[in-house]
């Protein structure tokens, strides 16, 4: 069984996003970039399946400009067998519906039995792409998973989903798409020898235009503003009584 792991290059999750005054868009020039943390977890889970003998091949896929190759090399260095780079001309505003169509075409071409990916990317926080792929391909879907196990006959997987009311466990018949939550596993670091080895692993480049998918934006960003936390005039208190009195005065107790 082949596993496809779609991955995304994003602004480092611990870096504050800033709006460029001139372009009025989020400024990513010179920003520290990283693999989306959810994607690292997806890669780790795929590698575990490969190591257990349940998967024949692990394939990372990413879509973007040339810089995206760095992220694919990181996946290869973590241990993924090969990578597919879907190259775009410049920074396109690709949306989950576009990404879903692009990835669905690759998943079909590779006849993958399982797709493991992040439940969201920490830039746009859409939480949509995995679901969209399952809708396009008719594959079973397990979102927000924090536990995963393949059945002995390799026909289905059992997943635990982190949902608002607790944990839901489901059995998904293969082929399936799973979107992973952060508590699924602890992703490994790429060791130096493996980073070296990754350079000679296969990386296929496909021009997005060759896939014949309409990528006209459906939803346009027409403006952005910084809306992070504002410093409040913190008042210091030094006892329980004082705190409770303040809260009563503010009318929140």
């Amino acid at each position: 069984m082949k596993i496809i792991i779609p991955i995304k290059r994003v602004l480092d999750p611990y870096t504050q996003a800033r709006v460029d005054k001139q372009t009025q868009m989020v400024d990513l020039t010179n920003a520290k970039m990283a693999m989306n943390p959810f994607c690292e977890i997806a890669v780790e889970e795929a590698l575990k399946l490969k190591e257990s003998g349940a998967a024949s091949e692990t394939i990372a896929v990413s879509i973007g400009t040339d810089k995206t190759v760095d992220t694919l090399r990181t996946a290869l260095a973590m241990g993924v067998d090969r990578a597919i780079f879907i190259k775009t001309e410049g920074d396109l505003d690709l949306q989950p519906l576009h990404l879903g169509k692009i990835l669905a075409s690759i998943i079909k071409r590779e006849e993958a039995g399982l797709v493991i990916m992040g439940k969201q990317a920490v830039d746009n926080d859409n939480n949509q792409t995995g679901q969209i792929i399952s809708g396009l391909l008719g594959y079973s879907l397990g979102t927000f998973i924090s536990k995963f196990s393949l059945s002995d006959d390799a026909q289905s997987v059992e997943v635990s989903r982190e949902i608002d009311s607790g944990i839901e466990t489901r059995r998904l018949h293969l082929p399936a798409i799973v979107t992973v939550d952060l508590r699924l596993n602890e992703p490994r670091y790429a060791s130096l020898p493996n980073i070296m080895k990754a350079r000679s692993k296969p990386l296929e480049t496909l021009e997005l235009s060759s896939l014949d998918i309409d990528v006209t934006p459906r939803v346009k960003v027409i403006g952005v503003v910084e809306s992070g936390t504002k410093d409040r005039a913190a008042k210091q208190v030094s006892s329980a009584k004082e705190l409770l009195e303040e809260l009563t005065q503010m009318g929140v107790l």
Binding site: P96, D125, N126, N127, T143, R218
Partner: peptide
């Protein structure tokens, strides 16, 4: 909510619509 986030994007795929989260 997790209920709708699980379902609505799949509807988007079926209707060829880009959902807004």
């Amino acid at each position: 909510a997790t209920y709708s986030k699980n379902i609505v994007p799949v509807v988007g795929a079926l209707l060829d619509v880009q959902p807004i989260s």
